[in-house]
Each structure stands twice: as structure tokens, then as C-alpha cells.
Design a protein around this nucleic acid. Structure first.
Lengths: 266, 266
DNA sequence: CGTTTGCTTGACAGCATTCAACGTTGGTGG
DNA sequence: CCACCAACGTTGAATGCTGTCAAGCAAACG
């Protein structure tokens, strides 16, 4: 019954350096004592960057990931156009990524949770191609790209792992394209919710219920729907007894039926 | 006025080993004399893998890319589930990538032309996550992943370049998500056509006209539209005097207006 | 030359958007 | 502590874009 108590609580009385009131949506880097919490002892060890590394590689990774950064709710970890020189592993919290369209239209391209990697799109142009905005008070591990690469060139399996992470990103995006290209509103929401619980379950939380960290509008933007459609469709799924909606608290009542809906009953 | 005479003509009387009649959509590897046409002397040098490499690195790359493979129209270079051990640089021709949805629904996730890279999604799971099907008789350079990596670990700028290629893939997919998530049929077609001519122009062909290598259905599948909608919308763009449609031969009459349409007048 | 595949166009239906009103929640200041 | 406001969410009604079904035509292929 306990879901997602992981966040918000431990980040309350933090000491992060906040930018001035007048400059919202941007945080200053707040380096902490290095090695205070290494990858090797991190709770997210099994879902984050270290997966599949042997003890020595893990040890090397520890040395690398010495900087952390807190990002307050609504603030950006980085923005499109910012120079790229590091990527980030989410330690705590949730982010959204968004790209900027020609006119005012932005598009949310993903929601990232603890253990997931941010910023890899920046390698392409040596500057970030999207914004990464915290949906709640969050904290990330900063991994310097240059530094990481000198290490990865010596430890091939680390390099391989890095490639895997990037490749997984591509696969994820391709699946998203399929969702956007061929599913109706009900299927999109079903796929979205199933994906979220599944990722939370992989992190040791409930596979039945969750607390959404994003607004209906952000969900809609992500799924290519209007916020009203999101709301309506959630209501519909509830009427069909597939889920239970209580504000942002969602309970999966019939995951089998949800999977049938999107054509992935496996 | 000459557009896209690059292909079809030179691949007519080829000697590629074809699989038996009974096994369609799959080609056998057809290694050629190594080094016959190295990266360093390839016409696609400036748009393909070698961009930004110094002479020595380029030389090393030459040794690596000794195998080629011809793929006949309609056949698959690789398929979802195939073991991943190499990625591919298109030497000649055009491919489509498609992922398989839960039920019968497939989704075209991209069209690749000469100089572009295929197969990087396979790294994630050590097996390919999509099909790559030739839209015309094509030819690719086979780049062994293991071999490439041993080299890349010694030549950091090669590694960096590899990362750039993967990252660019991510950025591309994100932009596609924006298209699918927030554009109407007219905008999708406009963006699609502009993107295609722009890529062809980067390869030394016309920036005004082109020959489509894919069917309306494939375009529609890619853009999240039905083939009838694609056809109708092309007709509409023609009525508006923005393009000229003649079968698969498309001429851009007013690229400025097309860019305005999609909100990228820059 | 006939068959198949691809393309175009029309009519109609359906799903998501748009516009609008109202309800809820959470934070702020009196 | 309560009132008020702003942001978020729900729901209804009407519009419209795209999908669906269908027919006819053109081009490609053997």
C-alpha cells in the first residue's frame, strides 16, 4: 500500500543553493562532499548506471560520480542550448524532458524517474537539445562526459554499458513513436500507466498503484492529447473498472485488460 | 534539375547472392574484395561515418569497413530479434525502419538514405529491435561493433563521433515525437517533405525536387496518418501551390510557405 | 495484355479538440 | 482560522479533422 514515499520527504530541509527569487526555473550546482554516497552503496545500484559492472569498474565509477546537484520543483536541470559537458543520473525525484517547437509549441518527450539517465541528447551538438525540468524536488548525480570517457576507454564493459543506455533511449523513443502514430486515447493512457507502474515496480515500489507527478496537461502533451481528453479518458477507464482514479493517485485494477487494450497481452 | 540519379541505375546488374525464391525479404551477406572502395575515397565521406576524423583515424576506419552487403528492394537488412553484432552505413539506396506493435500493427520509425547509419538500436539488447527493409536495391557497409569498439577505445575522437551519431538519433526521434504529438496532417507532410529535400541537398542533390522512394501507405504509417489522408493532403498542398505532385516526383514550389506552415520560418 | 499494386477522390462516421462552465485543491494573506 | 485566489481537474456540447468504406483510375510487373 505504500507507494512512492521515496521522495519529497528527504528533500524537505535541504541546503541546496537556490538561485535568487527573481530567476525561477534554474538552479545552481550544489556540490557536496565527494563520495559521501557512492554508486556502489546506492539503493539504485540495480536500475541505474552501475548495472552489470564488476567490482573494479564500479569502484572507478564511484570516483567519477562525486558531484551531486539538487533541483527544486519546477526548475530546470538544463535547458535546450546549454553547453553539454555532463549527463545526469537521477538520484531522487522525477523530471520531464521537453523539446521546443518552431512556434510556441513545446512537446514533452519523456518523464524520467530515479535511476534513469538525462542529457544524452546533448552529445550530438555539444549542447542540450531539450529542457529537463524537475516535477518535484529532485537530486541528480553529475557525470562528467569527458572524464567518463577517459575511464570508459580503459574499461570496455563500461563503454558498452554506456552504449546500451543510449541505445535503450532510442528503442524507447521508437516505441513512443508507435504509440503516437497508431493508438487512440484509451490505448495511449493504458500504455502510459502500465509503463509507469512497471518502472516503479522495477524500483521496488508497488506494481498496482502510483502517484502521478505530472499534471493532466503534461500527460496530454506527452501523449499527443489535450488535457480534457486525458481527464475524460481516465474517467472512462475508471468506469470500465480498469483503474481507480483519485486525483493523481492511480490504482491499477485490471492490468490484464489494460494490456489487452493495447495489444500486448503477454 | 537532375535529382536522385544516384541509385537504381548502378545497382541493376549486380552480382549479389540472393536467397532462394521461397525465402523472400532476406538477403545473404555478400562480402566483396576488401578495401576496394574505402571510406577515405567514398563520395559519402562528408555525410557518413568519417566526418570529422583526421587522416590517421580515417585510415583505421578503412581497415574496419571491408565488408559490404547488397540488399534487394523489399528485402530486410536485418529484422527485429536478429542478433546484433554490426551496424551499417548506407552506401547506396534507401531503407525504412519499422518496429512491431503488440498486435499486427507495425510502425515505420524512419527512412534512411545514403550515408546514414542503421542498426544502433540493437546495442541495447544485443539484438535488433526493428526491421530495416530496403525500399530500392541498396548497398551497405558493414561495421563490426566489437571491432569498431576496440578501435574506438584507442581513438577517442572516433568514439566521440560514434556517440554523436547515436545522440543525433535520439534528437531526431524526439523531433519526430513532436511532429506526431502536435501537428496536423498538412504540417506533418510539410515537415516530412522539407526534411527529405534538406537531407538530399546535404548529399549534393537538388533542394527543390525529389523522387519519393516509399509508398503513400509507408509515409502515412510513418507520419501517423492513413494513406488516403496522405494523398488528400498532398493534393491540398498542390492546390495551395506549395508543392507540385507528379506520382512520386515532388517539387517544392514554395519552401518558405511550407516552413511557415510548420512554424519554423528560420 | 491482364493482373496486381499503388494512388486518388467522394461520402459519411467517429473520435478528439475546442469552448465553456463548474468543482476541487492548496497556498497566501488578512 | 478563514477567506480568497490561482492552478488544476472534470464534464458537457458542438465543431472539425482524420479515419473508414467504397469506387475508379493509373502504373508496374510478369
Amino acid at each position: 500500500m505504500e507507494i512512492l514515499k521515496e521522495s519529497s520527504s528527504t528533500t524537505q530541509n535541504q541546503t541546496s543553493v537556490q538561485s535568487a527569487q527573481g530567476a525561477p526555473e534554474r538552479t545552481q550546482p550544489s556540490a557536496e562532499a565527494p563520495g559521501k554516497l557512492a554508486c556502489s552503496s546506492c539503493k539504485l545500484r540495480d536500475v541505474c548506471m552501475p548495472v552489470g559492472l564488476n567490482p573494479e569498474e564500479l569502484n572507478r565509477l564511484d570516483q567519477l560520480v562525486s558531484t551531486r546537484k539538487k533541483v527544486k520543483k519546477g526548475h530546470a536541470l538544463f535547458r535546450a542550448g546549454d553547453a553539454f559537458n555532463a549527463f545526469y543520473a537521477i538520484r531522487l525525484g522525477t523530471f520531464k524532458s521537453r523539446v521546443h517547437g518552431g512556434d510556441g509549441k513545446d512537446q514533452v518527450t519523456g518523464f524520467q524517474m530515479a535511476g534513469e539517465i538525462l542529457g544524452l541528447e546533448g552529445i550530438s551538438m555539444d549542447k542540450h537539445a531539450c529542457d529537463a525540468v524537475a516535477l518535484e524536488d529532485s537530486e541528480v548525480c553529475v557525470i562528467d562526459y569527458q572524464h567518463f570517457q577517459t575511464l570508459a576507454n580503459v574499461f570496455p564493459s563500461l563503454q558498452k554499458h554506456f552504449h546500451r543506455v543510449m541505445s535503450r533511449e532510442i528503442v524507447r523513443d521508437r516505441n513512443m513513436m508507435m504509440l503516437l502514430g497508431s493508438m487512440n486515447a484509451e490505448q495511449r493512457l493504458a500504455a502510459f500507466l502500465l509503463n509507469l507502474v512497471q518502472r516503479q515496480q522495477a524500483r521496488g515500489f508497488s506494481g498496482q498503484e502510483m502517484m502521478l507527478r505530472m499534471t493532466r496537461e503534461e500527460i496530454g502533451n506527452y501523449l499527443g492529447l489535450k488535457l480534457e481528453t486525458v481527464s475524460r479518458t481516465l474517467s472512462k477507464l475508471q468506469e470500465e473498472a480498469l483503474i481507480q482514479v483519485e486525483q493523481r493517485h492511480i490504482k491499477i485494477l485490471n492490468s490484464t485488460a489494460l494490456r489487452v487494450l493495447i495489444g500486448t497481452p503477454e
